[in-house]
Simulated scan of single mutants.
Amino acid sequence: MVTFLIILLVVVCIALGLFVLVQNPKGGGLATGGANSNMFGVQRTGDVLEKGTWVLLALLVVFSMAITVASKNGGAATGSKIDDHINKTATPSVIGGGLQKQEATPTKTGDSTKK
């Protein structure tokens, strides 16, 4: 389910990018260039692209929220290796476990100055 929502989110992001790139802030957009390109007109093209951008933006928000909710609710059911690794509790290791203690070496006492 989460994978399907992520795929839809990627498709919406690509479509939103294309819609934004096609728009011309001066009102030209799709209505400029070519002999048959004036089928919508400048105002109508701007309206269609603007409404499409808002719809795609709303879908982006909805899919993002749905992915967040689905991943929090179904996190344990997915069986992800990363989630399993994160959820493992750290077991403390015993320092020097199984090794015998070493005896302390005696220090030399006496005159440490050399002549």
Results as ranks from 00 to 15, higher is better:
Leu18Glu: 03
Lys51Tyr: 13
Leu49Pro: 07
Leu99Cys: 13
Asp84Glu: 12
Gly75Ala: 15
Ala76Ser: 13
Lys26Tyr: 00
Asp83Leu: 15
Lys72Asp: 14
Thr32Arg: 01
Met1Pro: 04
Thr78Pro: 00
Asp111Tyr: 05
Ser112Pro: 11
Thr32Tyr: 01
Lys101Val: 11
Pro25Phe: 02
Thr45Cys: 10
Ser71Cys: 05
Leu59Thr: 02
Gly28Arg: 09
Gly52His: 00
Lys114His: 04
Leu60Ser: 13
Cys13Asp: 02
Asp83Gly: 11
Leu5Ser: 03
Ser37Glu: 08
Ile67Leu: 07
Phe19Leu: 12
Pro92Met: 12
Gly79Cys: 06
Asp111Thr: 06
Val42Gln: 14
Ser93Gln: 15
Trp54Asp: 10
Gly41Asp: 03
Lys88Trp: 01
Ala77Thr: 11
Ile95Ser: 14
Ile95Thr: 13
Ser80Glu: 10
Asp83Ala: 15
Val69Pro: 09
Gln23Leu: 00
Gly98Thr: 09
Gly28Cys: 03
Thr107Ile: 05
Ile95Gln: 14
Phe19Ser: 11
Met1His: 04
Asn38Val: 06
Gly79Ile: 02
Pro25Ser: 02
Arg44Trp: 02
His85Ala: 15
Asn87Ala: 12
Asn87Met: 08
Asp47Ser: 11
Phe40Val: 07
Ala77Met: 10
Pro106Trp: 06
Leu8Val: 00
Ser112Arg: 08
Thr109Ala: 13
Val12Asn: 01
Thr107Pro: 07
Val10Asn: 07
Asp83Arg: 13
Thr3Cys: 00
Asn87Leu: 08
